[in-house]
Design a protein around this nucleic acid. Structure first.
Lengths: 192, 192
DNA sequence: CCATAAGATGAGTCCGGTTCCGTTTATGTG
DNA sequence: CACATAAACGGAACCGGACTCATCTTATGG
């Protein structure tokens, strides 16, 4: 069902070129690059862009989704080499550092993590699971409180990434992340 | 210098009507209300809207700025009636609750707190000062760590508000806020 | 009551995403 | 290899929405 027809050769090339062009533009921070530009720099016309992507937004989302999916592989690695609490710390700071490389990536992470858009559903679930794994490991080891869920932490991170990149942003983001970690380590569940 | 001419009577009325119409629309969550609609529901034409506000954005910002300025009065009150740490807790949760009343307010707080737009400079400074006052009081009392600044905490809150309103949002936001508070209370400064 | 400058109007411009259809091309079949 | 055909492409036209400007209206001070 997921492959009705194998997609013509040139079509696949063009699709790739579009994604790559969009990737360059968006991750470079030009978050409002025009469809015309993207299409041109991919060597195709707008019509072609719209053949491959429902809408401008859809294209952006595709770029971001891929980017975030990659990051979801990290927790597995980290848990192999570090104690749960440390793995959690490293992963959170990894996310922050990624967000710091450019406005584009920060927007990507925010879009995935802080919105309810169904388009990002998969990526969100994916990332939520990754965090849950880290939190569970920590809770089992007794080094992290057990009343915070992956999705909730995901939101908090989305919030941090929502802060637009600017001078001093990285340090602030790291500090806030450390605050969260301290809260995760030392806090005692409290009635809301 | 700030008052070259006293502004004609009808002009002031119209300006007020526009702000009020925009306020209704935006805080109700219709964050992409059309200028045409706003102008019409204020009983004026678009031209008039643009006589009073440089741009659509400028109008929105004006609405949001006012809203946030009001909130900045709270810390003063809270510090009079509560211990610093408790005042801080109440203020953070107050912000979260305000953000919860509707998408509009949440966008307002996010815009003010998580962006670097110079337009919000005043509001941001204002809010940053308010937080600094709370943090300083807590640090002096020894109940809150002293290495977090108002502006940084402001960013963190902006992040929380950037999470779009949805089912269960309020609870998540409160939980994250409590995490931050726990971090502020128990954490020990760590090298970045 | 008039002069005049501030203010209001709204049709028109501009801009950028999206659509649509005529043309081109990959691909598999005889 | 030539042809048929469906897939893919191009790009001019369309459309919605923010913004402008030439013209008309009206508050206000003398």
């Amino acid at each position: 069902m997921p492959s009705p027809r194998p997609l013509r050769a040139d079509a696949r090339r063009n699709r790739e070129a579009l994604l790559s062009a969009a990737r360059v533009a968006f991750l470079a921070g030009d978050t409002d690059a025009h469809v015309e530009e993207i299409a041109r720099s991919a060597g195709v016309a707008v019509g072609t862009l719209y053949r491959h992507f429902e809408t401008r937004e859809a294209l952006i989302e595709e770029v971001y989704r891929k980017e975030v999916d990659d990051l979801c592989a990290a927790p597995e690695q980290l848990l192999e080499h570090h104690a749960p609490a440390e793995a959690l710390r490293r992963f959170l700071l990894l996310l922050v550092d990624h967000a710091a490389v450019g406005k584009g990536m920060s927007v990507a992470l925010e879009s995935i993590m802080a919105s309810d858009s169904p388009v990002f559903g998969d990526a969100r679930t994916h990332m939520g699971d990754a965090l849950t794994r880290l939190l569970d490991a920590g809770a089992t080891a007794g080094t992290v409180r057990g009343d915070v869920t992956g999705p909730t932490l995901l939101r908090a991170l989305g919030g941090i990434c929502a802060m637009r990149v600017s001078d001093g942003w990285l340090d602030e983001a790291r500090q806030i992340t450390n605050l969260l970690l301290d809260g995760l380590r030392h806090g005692v569940p409290r009635a809301t």
